[in-house]
Amino acid sequence: MLEVPGWNMVDEGGTLKLNRSWKVKSFTKGLELFQAVADIAEAEGHHPDLHLTGWNNVKIEIWTHSAGGLTENDYILASKINGLDLQQFLTRKAA
């Protein structure tokens, strides 16, 4: 099975997903992170589920809805998100 550093594979009711969480500096930094991820997602034509809870907890879930689980495209998208300079968005201690 493929792995992407920092991403966890979870089974939600029989559906495999990749997810990753971060603590961001502020609510607006969370939205800026989402925009950076959205730019990649649009270019890839593959869209993750984005969650902002509380004011600074970001979670991204990636899976292929039409396949009902993980495909190679999910790992590619996670890798491209890892390529972002996340430090501008995150608190000093990443979750």
Rank of each mutant, 00 (worst) to 15 (best):
L33A: 14
S79T: 14
A95M: 05
D74H: 10
G83F: 02
K59C: 11
V4G: 02
D49P: 05
K93Y: 07
M9R: 15
E32N: 14
L86H: 00
N82I: 00
V58W: 02
W63T: 09
V10E: 15
I81C: 00
T28R: 11
A38N: 11
L70C: 04
E61K: 08
E12K: 11
D49I: 10
L50D: 00
G69H: 11
E3Y: 09
L52W: 12
M9F: 01
G69M: 09
Q88F: 02
D85K: 04
G13W: 12
H65T: 13
L77G: 07
S21A: 13
E3Q: 07
T15C: 07
A41V: 06
G54T: 14
L31D: 04
V10K: 09
P5T: 13
V10H: 13
G69R: 09
V37W: 05
T53Q: 15
S66L: 09
N56C: 04
E72A: 06
E72N: 03
W7R: 05
K80R: 15
G30P: 10
K17C: 01
T64Y: 04
W7Y: 02
G14D: 08
F27M: 06
H65D: 11
S26P: 06
A41H: 10
A95T: 09
K25C: 01
H47F: 08
S66D: 13
A38P: 07
T64S: 13
F89V: 08
G13E: 15
K23P: 00
L84H: 00
